[in-house]
Design a protein around this nucleic acid. Structure first.
Lengths: 134, 134
DNA sequence: CTATAGGGTTCGGTTTCCGAACGTAGCCTC
DNA sequence: GAGGCTACGTTCGGAAACCGAACCCTATAG
């Protein structure tokens, strides 16, 4: 695993934004996670859909596994045993972060309209985030 | 302004996560924005509280201004005219993203407890994000 | 007219990122 | 049982981003 000195310094800050930022704060990690929520699991599929270099993808996936966001596990294909990466509970709990980002992106960076629509399976409503008090 | 080829490619993707990620997805931008929400406005204060290099801070602030997230404006000190950076409405709307990140950070990356508590001014409750259907 | 402070820009060296090429472990096919 | 194919990486040299330190410019204060 490559050292990331500056990121490590960020991670040491006693701040609940700086620490996630040191893990998620790069150009690829967020879109890798988006693909995870889209159901992508295999190395080749991340690579071909994202266009990320193989070496960097390998490093990023490893970092997410080390952090506990993804779990790497072998599974049986129709044909053979493969590896796949799946979101852990910790990873699934990043959903609000991705949703918040998507809402903001839809509002401010989608001059040609939202690229996809998301529907709550079951009720058919559009989910949205709300800030509420306990 | 330095070119960022890969980021530009990401920005071209028709995806409401990739596009915000191309702007926010680096180690510094998220903590810069955190400081904005904390009330930091002046170049020197960002620099001294974050420890970011001046050149990079300059480039990041400029990028956020170009994107419309921050506004740069002169204002009158007690003593003289200075510049300051303030969140635009577009920037303020990033609050849910930061909150989502903070909630996740508090849950999974704060083994020594949440560093700060946030209270809703007025009601005194703890705000939290909820995913709701329309 | 010198000193100080804010807000940068420039510079050279170091770290990270990149695509392309290579490695390897299973399985399939002949 | 040799050769191929596929999935999943690792290695490598060059390009880009990042870094601290030093410098620059404009204002006010003394």
């Amino acid at each position: 695993m490559l050292a990331r000195m500056r990121a490590a310094e960020l991670a040491d800050e006693r701040c609940s934004i700086a620490r996630p930022a040191s893990l998620l704060g790069d150009r690829w990690t967020l879109v890798i996670l988006r693909q995870c929520f889209n159901g992508v699991k295999r190395f080749e599929d991340f690579q071909s859909t994202l266009g990320i270099s193989r070496s960097l993808l390998s490093e990023r996936l490893g970092r997410l596994v080390d952090a506990g966001v993804l779990r790497r596990e072998p599974y049986k294909d129709a044909v053979r045993t493969r590896d796949r990466y799946r979101l852990t509970e910790m990873g699934l709990d990043l959903y609000p972060v991705l949703m918040a980002l998507r809402e903001w992106g839809d509002r401010y960076m989608a001059e040609d309209g939202p690229p996809i629509e998301i529907r709550h399976r079951g009720c058919g409503g559009e989910p949205s985030l709300e800030l509420r008090c306990s």
